[in-house]
Design a protein around this nucleic acid. Structure first.
Lengths: 137, 137
DNA sequence: ATATAAATGCAATGGAAGTGCATTGTTTTA
DNA sequence: TAAAACAATGCACTTCCATTGCATTTATAT
């Protein structure tokens, strides 16, 4: 519990009750979380608070946003050393079309890609869609 | 002109006036097109028609949908041999954060990616964000 | 020419993102 | 400690895009 507080403080985010709960929730889930998921879990809290909590977490480098092609923004906790703002160290994401869950495949780094003349890469996003291990067995 | 009609017929899509116009519009543009773009171009036509035209084009393999991370669906004509439904032959997309345009980099194929045990890939989507050649010069 | 089916137009809905402002709670400092 | 300053939360509302149901028009087939 105290550990989460420290983590938040290290990232310059005030460890409020709500934020600790959301962080804990995301840490327990292994999959990327949508705002709706959090809404359905914390029904007493206001949508805006949850929304802004995610935004704050993202700005402060606590979570990274994932665009898995469903047009619903999802978020996952950054692992230690998850340089999600640098284009050198991007991992890929897997979206299961059966259970609709998205997971970070942190072990899989993106290969370097040579762009045509004049193009400057700042960020990259690779999503593989298919059937996840839970649904394929 | 007749060429477009033939293309549509080959894909089992009736070459109506509207569809030919939209196809022509997309062929002239080198960038991926959003529904809004088409709306602003063909103001006399109904939004729904344009929307359904894109859907039809997508289903029949005339265009492929691109998710560039802006949460706005964009579309681009499939090139001959654009096996966008197969995960072997996927090209990548580049989204410029300055001019907000998205282009297909068809020459750049995705490297093969080994997924963990149990994961079955069906589709993939790689978007690089940054500054495009027009904006960087 | 008529029946049938497809394409289009209109109206309305839904879902998610985002914003302005008032209120509450928590630091800071005088 | 009390007051001022600031951050976090809650409420209401707006916007934007995707999507659907149904009526109408247009094209195809018998």
């Amino acid at each position: 519990m105290k550990e989460i507080e420290k983590t938040l403080e290290n990232k310059n985010v005030r460890p409020t009750a709500m934020r600790i709960l959301i962080y804990k929730y995301m840490a327990e889930k292994e999959v990327a979380i949508a705002l709706t998921d959090i809404e359905n879990t914390f029904t007493k809290a206001d949508r805006t608070t949850l929304y802004r909590t995610l935004k704050t977490f993202e700005e402060k480098g606590i979570v990274h946003q994932i665009d898995d092609g469903t047009n619903i923004s999802k978020y996952a906790l950054c692992e230690p050393g998850c340089n999600c703002e640098l284009d050198q160290d991007l991992h890929l994401h897997f979206h299961c079309s059966n259970c609709d869950e998205t997971v970070c495949l942190t072990a899989h780094k993106l290969p370097h890609i040579n762009l045509p003349e004049g193009y400057i890469a700042e960020d990259a996003n690779l999503v593989i869609k298919g059937i996840c291990d839970k649904c394929s067995s």
